[in-house]
Design a protein around this nucleic acid. Structure first.
Lengths: 201, 201
DNA sequence: CCGTACTTATACACCGGTGTTCTGGATACC
DNA sequence: GGTATCCAGAACACCGGTGTATAAGTACGG
């Protein structure tokens, strides 16, 4: 695998790098529309030969994972820009709204990853980004605006679960895409409210 | 396909019927453990030849669907025994607890159905059983103990979504199976509470 | 402008899973 | 006990998708 005599990693040629990102973008795009999209389609959509694709990603699994990570990196950039200090409930709403946009865009890629990546592989990639949410929830719990009778991890899970549910409902035609953010936020805020407290309206 | 001169549909022979239910049970069992279980495994587990299986279910899709319906019938029987009159919140808890047990048992079969059945096919089977829940929620909304600022269908969806989330969390080892019912109920009760009201503890 | 890295098309091997066909044998039903 | 029905096992064809080899062409980079 070493490329030069000095064992220095030679830079990829520019056209190769261009192709790689084209492939990743195409994969994300294809998988978002159909999580089962095959290599042929992805290569075609990237404007690249199938063999070229295999030159960069040895197996389908590697490609799916790479595409997933690619999406995650983009998501991270967006989420990093959010200011989550201040009232945890407001921060939650902010985070949920933005996360929803991301989720909505990449839902197919996520489905593909869930379908094909070995169990727990996704988790290990998502762990990092998830910390942001866990921290926020933990803070809210400490301040007492979020419930503490349920484990933090469960509240974290609900965050994604509710969004996943919204995706399904939209797909089924029972929820309008433009209502999703509101509905998600209303649900989460209520679900996170400590028992005995009033549900924020 | 007609079997007799009187064009009356001749009953299947008893051993055939026995095999069919054996196959359905086996399918349910195998798919619950691995949603991707293949025909060979299912036939073997049913103690039946692969060809016999194909004699009763022409394609894998038909088998999966039949197994799903089979599970649904069993679930229906259990749920029918529940008394859901009285306080909607208590009824909800009752319904959720029982539904969870069912969901937990057949999660794999559900996953298989989601994976392989054409979009909406599941929905059409589940519509009936779901009415029970929709009615309960509607009643609670009218009485004012469940929120009305979100569509009934969304609350219905949350019911299943939360359980789905619990399945994942258990699979990931972040939730103990014995805690699931409590956590689910606490989440649903809070999520269903009308804004401005106190979350029941 | 030359060498190398990269791309491409075609063609092929492989794989697991699905579904079919056949034949001999067992078993339920009357 | 005779017969239609059903079952079993093996063999095979098929399919879509994945991955590999080859050989010729193209574009980058120095």
């Amino acid at each position: 695998m070493r490329t030069g005599p000095g064992s220095a990693v030679r830079e990829r040629r520019s056209d190769a790098r261009r192709n790689i990102t084209a492939i990743l973008d195409a994969a994300l795009d294809c998988l978002s529309r159909d999580p089962q999209a095959n290599i042929v389609d992805i290569a075609k959509s990237a404007g690249v030969g199938r063999v070229t694709l295999y030159g960069h990603f040895a197996t389908r699994g590697q490609l799916v994972e790479a595409a997933f990570v690619h999406a995650l990196r983009q998501a991270e950039a967006t989420l990093d820009a959010l200011d989550l200090s201040g009232d945890p409930r407001q921060a939650l709403t902010k985070l949920a709204t933005t996360s929803w946009q991301i989720m909505d865009r990449y839902r197919g890629a996520l489905a593909a990853a869930q379908r094909e990546l070995p169990l727990g592989r996704i988790r290990s990639h998502v762990d990092g980004p998830m910390e942001r949410l866990a921290a926020l929830i933990g803070r809210g719990q400490q301040v007492g605006v979020f419930r503490s009778d349920l484990p933090t991890e469960w509240l974290v899970a609900m965050f994604y679960t509710v969004m996943h549910g919204a995706v399904s409902e939209i797909a089924a035609g029972r929820l309008l895409a433009e209502d999703a953010a509101r509905v998600i936020n209303a649900t989460l805020v209520a679900a996170y409210a400590p028992p005995g407290s009033k549900v924020p309206s």
